[in-house]
């Protein structure tokens, strides 16, 4: 009786663990997150990071939240008709085995109606929500974007 029960429990625990590892929050590693320091009184800022999917399934970032801003959206920049166009996007794909970069001039987590000015040294807590419903907490240090000596694109 007891060995069977413990076997079932072990199996159940193993299955749960496997499932936990296969979700996006487990598969996607977030590296070099940061939020951009913007001028005092600015309405919006952007957070950037690299999303590395180490799993075997495709994932997607579909939402983000932060106590630092009233609204958080996913946006991308596209150069079209000679103009920089910023648009909200419903999802940012992170294919299996690939890295999706959120970086200046491209995808970003848009922090809208900042609750306070973002100063260097602060950290912006972010909660990322993936398409499978799993969530991941990320701490993005506020950085002043300085000079780039090389071209970005």
């Amino acid at each position: 009786m007891f060995p069977t029960r413990s076997l079932i429990l072990t199996l159940a625990a193993t299955l749960t663990c496997t499932q936990a590892l296969a979700d996006a929050a487990g598969d996607v590693q977030v590296t070099t997150p940061y939020a951009r320091q913007v001028p005092p009184g600015a309405v919006a800022s952007a957070a950037f990071m690299e999303l590395n999917n180490r799993g075997h399934e495709d994932h997607a970032l579909v939402a983000a939240a932060s106590p630092a801003a009233e609204v958080v959206e996913l946006h991308e920049h596209v150069m079209k008709d000679g103009m920089m166009q910023m648009r909200p996007v419903p999802r940012i794909g992170i294919p299996a085995g690939a890295t999706t970069r959120l970086q200046p001039g491209g995808y970003h987590v848009m922090l809208i109606h900042l609750r306070q000015d973002l100063a260097s040294g602060q950290t912006v807590p972010l909660t990322l929500t993936f398409e499978d419903g799993s969530k991941k907490a990320v701490e993005a240090p506020v950085r002043r974007i300085g000079a780039m000596t090389k071209k970005m694109h």
Partner: peptide, 18 residues
């Protein structure tokens, strides 16, 4: 424009650094 969180700050930071 000032609601621009990325493109304008990138250019102005470059100019400021120059």
């Amino acid at each position: 424009y000032t609601s621009c969180p990325d493109i304008c700050p990138t250019n102005l930071a470059q100019i400021g650094a120059a």
